[in-house]
């Protein structure tokens, strides 16, 4: 297939495979901590950051997006603590604010040369060396963090009170998780787009929750499902000329439905 010999397509596959490892891994912790929507929030805010990056004439608008996602993740963490029982309220407000700000900023200047839709829906075929380096670096950091702090993240996610009683630095761990989430979303936007980024974080995790017995198994399953859907989706999209991000996300949903239908009956 000559698709695979094309440089832009190989870059897409590499970028996709990298983000399909780090995104779902982090996503599993986020979903279990009832922060499923954080992906949406951060990605919407980061589109506003991208727009601001263009307006301010930054060399790399993506850096603007990354910075905005980081700021938003700190805000979410702060609000989550301030309004413990209304965590989703802060998320909803930030999400709406982010997308409104993004639209406004994009409408200020029509000379961007870049359509807002490429950030909303992704533009995986335009990954350059800098993008790939950023994706690889973020993936390496996420994998290293999970490898080093698997125990602590597990306990924080399963029972935050027990983690605190055990003397874990709960605040620092929460902060670290938020920052990593922002980084993953910052680099994922170019691949699947802001509107679909949280699907990559949450749907593989949802499959893992349904089918796996242990936590370790659900993490492996989430990554496996995401990798398979990413590679199959990109190939299908390239072959039939479909929107790549949307194809990947729809494949993920198909896998989730199949898991729901065919999963083993729970046994005692």
């Amino acid at each position: 297939m000559d698709l695979l010999t094309m440089e832009f397509f190989r870059r897409a596959l590499i970028g996709g495979a990298l983000i399909a490892a780090s995104g779902p891994l982090l996503g599993l912790f986020l979903v279990l901590r009832r922060l499923s929507m954080i992906g949406d929030t951060l990605s919407h805010v980061s589109v506003a950051g991208v727009a601001a990056g263009y307006l301010l004439g930054l060399g790399s608008p993506a850096a603007g997006g990354m910075a905005a996602a980081l700021l938003a993740s700190l805000a979410v963490e702060r609000l989550r603590r301030a309004y413990k029982t209304y965590a989703e309220l802060s998320i909803a407000i930030l999400m709406a604010g982010g997308i409104a700000l993004a639209s406004l900023l994009f409408s200020l200047d029509r000379g961007f040369g870049v359509n807002i839709t490429s950030y909303l829906f992704g533009s995986i075929y335009t990954l350059n060396d800098a993008d790939l380096t950023a994706i690889a670096a973020v993936t390496a950091v996420v994998l290293a963090a999970v490898a080093l702090q698997y125990k602590e993240w597990f306990l924080m996610t399963f029972d935050e009170d027990a983690a605190a009683v055990g003397g874990l630095p709960v605040r620092a761990l929460n902060l670290g998780m938020s920052v990593l989430t922002a980084l993953v979303i910052g680099v994922s936007i170019k691949i699947v787009g802001a509107l679909l980024v949280s699907a990559l974080l949450t749907i593989p995790a949802a499959c893992g929750l349904l089918a796996a017995r242990s936590f370790r198994q659900s993490a492996l399953l989430a990554v496996g499902v995401a990798e398979a859907a990413m590679l199959a989706g990109l190939l299908a999209a390239g072959f039939w000329n479909l929107a790549p991000g949307a194809t990947v996300v729809l494949l993920l949903i198909a896998v989730l439905l199949a898991t729901l239908i065919f999963r083993r009956r729970p046994r005692l």
Binding site: K151, F154, L155, F158, A163, G167, L168, P169
Partner: peptide, 8 residues
């Protein structure tokens, strides 16, 4: 996870 406190 009972062993996952600060000393480890």
């Amino acid at each position: 996870s009972g062993l996952y406190g600060r000393h480890r």
